[in-house]
Amino acid sequence: MAETVLVLVIKKISIALANEVTNQASAQFAKHAVQLTELQGSMRRIMRELHVMHDFLCQMDIRSRGNQVYQGWLEEVHKVVYVMEDMVDEYMHLVGRHRDLGCCFYLKRSFRQPRSVLSLDSIASMVNQTEKDLAHLSQTKERWVPITNSGNSSYNFVQRPQDLASISRSLDEDDLVGIEDNKQKLVEWLGVGDPARSVIVLHGMGGLGKTALTSTVYRKERERFDCHAWVSISQTYIREDILRRLIVEIFRDKSNAPSNIATMDITTLQDTLKGFLE
C-alpha cells in the first residue's frame, strides 16, 4: 500500500532528526552549521508534508481505486518519496549512523541504485529539490485529482475495505514479518476477561498491517469460541448488510441455516441473530 511507503520514510526521517544524530552531525559539520540547519529544516517540513499526504492517501485509496489520474499522481509521489528515502540513507551514512535505521525497514524496492557517498552539499541540494517536488505534487493534486474523483465512487468507498479484509484472510502466517509480539498479546487478551463483553481495538496509521495481524489471530483462535464471524465494516455501511453478513458467517456449514436471509427485513435479521446467540 502507498501509505506503508510513506510511514517507513517518515520513520526514517524522524530517526535522522533525533537528538543523538543531530548532535553528532552538528559536531561533524561544525563548519557548515548554516547549511546543516537548512537541511534539517527541509527534512522537518518534508516529514510534515508526508504526514498530511499519508492521511490524504488513507482516504483517497478507498475512493479512487481505478482512477487513472489518481494512480498516475500516486506513481509520481512514489518516485519523489523514494528519492527522499535515498537522501535520508545517504545523510545517515555520511553522519556515520546508518545502522540506526534498523532492520525494521524491510519493505524496500526490488532494485536500487548503487550506493554513492554524497557530500552534505549534494544531499542538501537534493532534499531542497524534493521539498519543491512535493509542493508541486500537492498543487497538481488540487488541480486534477478532485475533478476526476467526482464520479460514482460509492462502490469503491464501501468495497475497498472489504477487498482488503478478504485479501488479508488469504495471507499465510509466513507472509507476515514482525508480528509475533503483537500476535501473542492478542491471543492472551482473547483468553482473559468476560468473553461475552469484550472489545479489543487495534489502532495505528494505515498500512501497518492491522488487518493482516487480526486475520492471522482470528484464523488461529476462532475454534476456541462457540461461534465466530469475520465481517468488514467500512466508513459508510448499511446495517442490514452487516447483519446479513454476520448471519451468513455464523451459520456457515450449519444445517439449520435460514434460507431467506436475502429477503429478511432488519427486525427479522436482528431477531435471527439474537436467537442464535442466545
Score class of each variant (00 low, 15 high):
9 V>Y: 01
9 V>D: 02
10 I>R: 10
11 K>C: 00
14 S>Q: 13
14 S>P: 02
17 L>E: 00
18 A>Q: 05
19 N>F: 07
20 E>H: 08
20 E>A: 09
22 T>S: 13
26 S>A: 08
28 Q>S: 11
30 A>H: 15
30 A>L: 12
32 H>I: 01
33 A>G: 05
33 A>P: 09
34 V>K: 06
34 V>H: 06
35 Q>L: 13
36 L>N: 02
37 T>N: 13
40 Q>V: 13
40 Q>S: 06
40 Q>K: 13
41 G>E: 06
44 R>I: 10
46 I>T: 06
48 R>N: 14
50 L>H: 08
50 L>F: 13
52 V>D: 15
54 H>Y: 11
55 D>I: 06
56 F>D: 15
57 L>Y: 02
57 L>V: 01
59 Q>T: 14
59 Q>H: 15
62 I>F: 13
63 R>Q: 15
65 R>M: 12
66 G>H: 07
67 N>Y: 06
67 N>S: 02
68 Q>D: 07
69 V>C: 04
71 Q>N: 09
71 Q>G: 06
72 G>V: 00
74 L>T: 01
74 L>W: 03
75 E>G: 08
77 V>A: 09
78 H>N: 09
80 V>W: 05
80 V>C: 07
81 V>Q: 03
83 V>N: 03
83 V>D: 02
84 M>H: 08
85 E>V: 01
86 D>S: 10
86 D>L: 12
87 M>R: 08
88 V>C: 04
88 V>M: 04
90 E>H: 10
91 Y>N: 04
91 Y>W: 07
91 Y>R: 09
92 M>T: 03
92 M>G: 05
92 M>F: 05
93 H>Q: 07
94 L>W: 03
96 G>L: 04
97 R>V: 13
97 R>D: 14
98 H>E: 15
99 R>V: 12
100 D>R: 07
101 L>W: 05
102 G>W: 05
104 C>T: 13
105 F>T: 14
106 Y>G: 10
107 L>D: 10
107 L>S: 06
107 L>V: 12
109 R>E: 15
109 R>V: 12
110 S>V: 14
111 F>I: 11
112 R>K: 08
112 R>W: 07
114 P>Q: 03
115 R>P: 01
116 S>F: 15
116 S>L: 14
117 V>L: 07
120 L>E: 04
121 D>V: 02
122 S>A: 07
122 S>N: 01
122 S>F: 06
124 A>M: 00
125 S>Q: 05
126 M>F: 10
126 M>P: 00
127 V>M: 14
130 T>W: 10
131 E>A: 06
132 K>E: 10
133 D>L: 04
134 L>R: 01
134 L>P: 03
134 L>F: 15
135 A>Q: 14
135 A>I: 04
135 A>D: 12
135 A>V: 10
137 L>K: 10
137 L>G: 08
137 L>S: 07
138 S>N: 12
139 Q>T: 03
140 T>D: 11
